[in-house]
Structure formats: C-alpha cells, structure tokens
Design a protein around this nucleic acid. Structure first.
Lengths: 189, 189
DNA sequence: CATCCAAGCGGACTGTTGGTCCGCTTAATT
DNA sequence: AATTAAGCGGACCAACAGTCCGCTTGGATG
C-alpha cells in the first residue's frame, strides 16, 4: 500500500493535540472540552484536528487506545496473571483490576470517551478488544452463561460516572473490592 | 401552597408535547429528535416546551416517569411476585422481567433518556427508585455483596444500546434469559 | 356579561459546538 | 532550485439547547 510515512509536522501536531486534550480533560471536567479549545490549546487549526481524527469520537477513541496499549500487550503476550497461563477466574480478576486502575487514572478521559461513543459503543476497537477478552474468560469459567452479555455487564462497571460515584464515597478500595466480590459471586464462589 | 391547578391550555399542550415526543422517538431514532421538532410536531412554540419541562433532560425524565408509573405501583402496593410477600430472589427476577418488558416496549425512549441524563444519571427520580428497590432486594438476598454497586450493575443491563444490541441477534428471549441467568448466578444458584 | 390580570404562549434571538471547505504553506523528493 | 501533494488554519455553516419579551387568553370576580 502507498502508506507514506507521516510528515514531520503532522506528527508534531498529532502529539500536540493528544497532549492538549489530556491536559484539558484533566483541568476542566469530562464535558466542557470542545474541539475548538483543543485546537487552540494545541496551537493548531481546527481543521488539523478533524483531518487527523475525523471527529470528536475519533479523537477520544484514539486517546483511549493509547492509554490501553500496555494492558493490551499484557493480556496477549505478558506474564500471568494478566497473560495466559492461569485459570480464567484469576485471569479475569487480574484484568478487571488492571482496568480499574486504568479507569481511576484516566477518569475524565473515560467519561468523555463514553459520551463521545454513546452511539457506536460496540464499534470502538478498544472496547471490542476488552469485551472479547472478557467474553472468552467467562465462557471458559461459566459455559452455562451468556458470556457476551455478561461481559458487557461486567465492563459496565467501568462507566465513568459509576466509577466516580462509587469512589466518591468509599474510595478506590471500595471499587476494586466491589468488582472483586461481584466477579467471584458471578463465577460461583 | 398556592398550587393553582394547571390551566386548560397548559394541560392540552403538555399532553400534546408528550405525545409528539413519543411519536418522534418512535419514528426517528433516539437521537435525531430535537426540541424544535418536538415543539413543531406538538403544534406549540419552543418556549412552551421549555417552560413546562425545563430542559431536554427534564422532558425525557418526565416521559420515562410516566411510562414507569405502573411498575412503581406494582412493586410498592401490588400483589406478589412484584409486590412484597415473596423471597427477594423471586421478587428481583420478577422486577427485572418487568423492566425488560418496559425497555423493549420503549427502546427509543430509554436510549434518549440515557443520553439526556448522561451527566446526572444518579439524580433521575425514576432511576433512583429502581435502584433503591434493587439494592434492598440484593442486600436481603446477598448481604455479603456491595448491594448498591451490584444494583447499578444490574440496572446497566437495561442500557438502551445494550438492549438493542442483544435483541438484534437473539431476540427478546435472549435478553430475558440472559438477565435471568445472570441474576441467578449472582444471587448464588 | 364585562373586566381584569397573571399564567401561559410562541417564535425570534443568542451562544456554543461539531464539522466542512478551500486557498495558502511547506516537507520531502528529484 | 523546482516540484507537488500532504498538510495547514481559520472563516464559515448548520443544528441545537436554552432565553426573552411582547402578545394572548383562561378563568376568576362582581
């Protein structure tokens, strides 16, 4: 394919946009971040943002994908318990712990991503990867359940608003404990 | 309090707005329904919509509250298994079945409501009522779990997009069966 | 029935935002 | 140095939530 390498200025701008978006998300809430602001903060024109990311949704998807790279590698080729080689129950718990960690460290991004992908949540590559991983583990541990459905339900635990709401009173330990208990109850024992 | 009764024209317009909203939701998808359209379809001015419902969110909340009245009565004062008088497990399953029914009959409304309440999901009176009901039943059946958290998770099964996605391949029976199985697994057999 | 007035009305108007367009600039290649 | 397509930026557009205010009217009063 004629996939020319990215031009130097394009690379510079792409990184500036991603960094600016993160910073704005951090500073203002998950809402209240318009693409005009992003463009201004990144020191580029609005057109540049849209040419590269296609849409608001695309921007947040790519940003989340970026933050999810490490987990993605860990579950496919990393060592146990995230990587293969342990019973599904342990592996699922390890994965959910990792996700909780990611969610807590990127709360604003998660919320913004949720809202931006409201329509086509089931098209987002990152979500799909997570979903298929969880589906596989559930199918293995509890073949009697509708693994796909349960996987969606489990991933719903990381909804930005829910995470914020739960940690707001109970802190991070409440979140991880609750998910832990929920998962064990689900998988039986 | 000086709560004058609603003026006749106000009543007429309120009903027209609610009916128009339902019809537009039905016809077009959950998105693609602007309040300008609603006002036009109802044959009233835009100001009238906002005076009565306050905001887009308010409109969808009130519409959902309307559709949820019957279930609300059934769980507080109705006969078992929705009303009191049976073990929590049965009562929870009956409630979730009723919700699934409601969701399936009002899919577009549910989606629109979800999106409109994205910010303050935990302020919506209808959601709160459902949540506290489910929380109570779970606390009774499984005192070892974080009932509030699990209740949020269970109610996430009725996310408009998830319902659409699941019923799209598997139909209504897949939805109810999956929820059924999930609940039983959670409550321990 | 005539009068009155506050509740109600409607639609023009505003501010914000996601997304588009197109003439100009520049990185990279020759 | 010349060439050219990839990239740029910001003016522009359309859609939408929400506000405002001068006009209308339901219904209460005498």
């Amino acid at each position: 394919m004629g996939d020319r390498p990215e031009r130097a200025d394009a690379t510079r701008n792409r990184l500036a946009i991603l960094r600016a978006t993160e910073e704005l998300l951090e500073r203002h809430g998950a809402d209240h971040v318009s693409l005009d602001q992003v463009a201004a903060a990144a020191g580029v024109g609005k057109g540049t943002v849209f040419r590269r990311f296609g849409s608001r949704t695309g921007l947040f998807q790519e940003l989340l994908a970026d933050r999810a790279v490490l987990i993605g590698e860990a579950i496919t080729t990393g060592p146990p318990p995230l990587g293969p080689g342990v019973p599904p129950k342990e592996r699922l718990i390890a994965f959910l712990d990792a996700l909780a960690d990611l969610a807590l460290r990127n709360l604003a991004l998660i919320s913004a991503h949720d809202r931006a992908c409201a329509d086509d949540k089931y098209q987002d590559p990152t979500y799909l990867r997570w979903h298929s991983h969880v589906t596989g583990l559930i199918a293995e541990a509890r073949p009697d359940l509708d693994a796909e459905f349960v996987a969606h339900t489990l991933l719903a635990c990381f909804d930005g608003d829910l995470v914020r709401h739960v940690t707001a009173n109970g802190g991070r330990t409440r979140l991880t404990h609750s998910i832990h208990d929920l998962t064990l109850a689900l998988l039986g024992q």
